[in-house]
Computed example of a mutant assay.
Amino acid sequence: MKFLNNIQLDNFLDTLISLVVAFILGGLIGFERQYRQRTAGLRTNVLVALGAAIFVDIALTLHGTDGAVRVIAYVVSGIGFLGAGVIMRQEGNIQGLNTAATLWCSAAIGAAAGADLLLEAVLATVFILAANTLLRPIVHVIERRPLDDEAELLNVIYIVCDRLESQRVMEQLNQALRQHNYPPKDIDVEPFGEQDVQIEATLIATSIEARVMNHIIELLNHIPSVRYAYWDKNTMN
């Protein structure tokens, strides 16, 4: 019956408040990630925040501030393994870095809540949400500008299709690009074999979302007259 000696109403209420705060704040961050359909969404961010809060709260209860500090150090390093699981390499691009960083921040919020630094946890949540929402339009503006005057990274769509249907394919390509706000900088058409042509569309945007581009490529590959379509990046000096 030793566990009865560890039941203290003050400590229980303190733990309850810490976990509730970690749950709510982790949920706010996770909701934004879930809304944008990222790999680590609502439940993952909540669980990361709760886990960090539980570990830190236990250490604080058992060993005081020194114990909490040691556990926080382990949380900071340990969350890196979880973040690595959401980082993927696809089509030459590294994806998931922002989601991994958000998980890292969720752990920090949970640790702050577990250490009874509730106002600090709330403040950190505000800044994290601002980074993931308010800075997003600025990032898109910067990414759509050329890298510099000497070297420019170009996104290029390649389509091989029936020569007689090339005009219709280009119309559908332009329609898909306009829908996603990726206007073409230049479109070249060259013979490809006896009956086909290759359409090469260079985009103005220097950086694009792989998810959107893969969707466009999928649409193009479903056109009956298209043999195949893909996209790649070229560097123009």
Rank of each mutant, 00 (worst) to 15 (best):
L173D: 09
D196V: 00
F192K: 05
R144M: 04
N181L: 07
P146F: 08
V197Q: 00
P146N: 06
Q198D: 00
D162C: 06
P184K: 02
V156Q: 02
L177W: 04
A151E: 13
D186C: 04
K185L: 14
R144Y: 03
L173G: 08
Q195T: 09
G193P: 03
A176L: 15
P191S: 09
P191G: 06
A151Y: 13
I199F: 01
L164S: 12
D148S: 15
I187A: 03
V160E: 04
D162G: 07
I199H: 00
K185F: 05
K185G: 06
I159Y: 01
C161G: 08
Q175L: 15
V160Q: 02
C161T: 15
E143W: 08
P146H: 07
A176R: 07
Q195N: 13
L154M: 11
R145I: 10
G193T: 05
F192Q: 06
D188P: 00
P183L: 14
P146S: 05
R144L: 00
E152V: 08
M170Y: 03
A176M: 12
R145Y: 13
E190M: 10
P184D: 06
I157Y: 02
R168Q: 13
Q172M: 15
L177Q: 01
I199W: 00
Y158S: 07
E150C: 03
R178T: 14
G193D: 06
R178C: 05
P184S: 11
S166C: 12
D188R: 14
M170N: 13
E150A: 12
H180Y: 14
D148K: 03
V189S: 04
R145A: 13
